[in-house]
Design a protein around this nucleic acid. Structure first.
Lengths: 144, 144
DNA sequence: TGTATTCCTATTATATTAGTAGTATATTAT
DNA sequence: ATAATATACTACTAATATAATAGGAATACA
């Protein structure tokens, strides 16, 4: 269960937008430079975040990206879900018809429990709460 | 974060061994038939479980596999760890030297928290506790 | 000795992730 | 208007990991 760079980079980018909330749009080339990611790859990640309604893009000169909501209204679970997909993918947890014994299967209950547990953690964390934690050091740009 | 067939099949196999604990060695061809997995692939999964000390193999005619400990002494976390690896793989969580800002990084603390949360769930579940749950229906063979 | 089983190693197939590239479209500034 | 700048969109390529197959060696039992 490896965390993809898609999710790691994407969340780093969103955190940088949160850090600059209310300072106007931030351009991808800026984020790319700070985070050591290519602009082109970032574009694709932002497209995902955009279609999830987390960010919006402004074209043209002086354009860039902004958060659609304030950092205290965006949960880590929102970002994680669209970038990474379901926390733990086992077909039978999502699709009751996948297996004839779904309603009795014991292991399925384990995967479902894990899924819920992780979602609870991610839902309890907002971008703002993460920023607040980091303020003293301001080391936001570096690695996730 | 998809769960690999390696883990799903491996845990199914271990559960079948648990189900037959004290009935002598169970052969891979039997498990393979019940679970709809090839013997050859199962061999590789059992090799992993064997090197983790969870099962042991007995060669030759009338051979097969047995659990090295009773089902109430084997935790799901033991099986999961060796089959799937760390719950959530982010280099910096395992390796403090991966990133220069490890000690301050906020996102790292999130991944670490999730890792711990999931491990707590897996550690709280033994093979026996799963068997006890399923006894009434005996649907152990089917899909995980 | 023959049969059945695990054990070991190599190879292939498939899917997913990661990343690059090119062009179109929109916005701003001159 | 035109040039410059940035996102938007789509296609392609590379790298990696998973999943599965295959062949033969070693061991145990009858």
């Amino acid at each position: 269960m490896k965390l993809s760079t898609r999710t790691r980079y994407g969340i780093r980018a969103v955190l940088e937008l949160a850090e600059n909330y209310n300072s106007g749009p931030i351009q991808l080339k800026t984020i790319a430079r700070h985070q050591g990611i290519s602009v082109k790859y970032l574009e694709q990640l932002m497209a995902i975040l955009k279609s999830a309604g987390i960010v919006s893009g402004l074209r043209g000169s002086k354009g860039g990206y902004i958060l659609t909501k304030s950092p205290d209204q965006i949960r880590l679970s929102d970002c994680f879900n669209c970038l990474e997909g379901p926390v733990i993918t086992v077909e039978c947890v999502e699709n009751n018809n996948f297996c004839p014994r779904t309603c009795d299967c014991i292991a399925r209950t384990v995967w479902a429990e894990i899924q819920k547990t992780v979602m609870d953690v991610l839902q309890s964390i907002t971008l703002q709460s993460l920023l607040d934690k980091s303020k003293p050091n301001e080391n936001l740009h570096y690695q996730i």
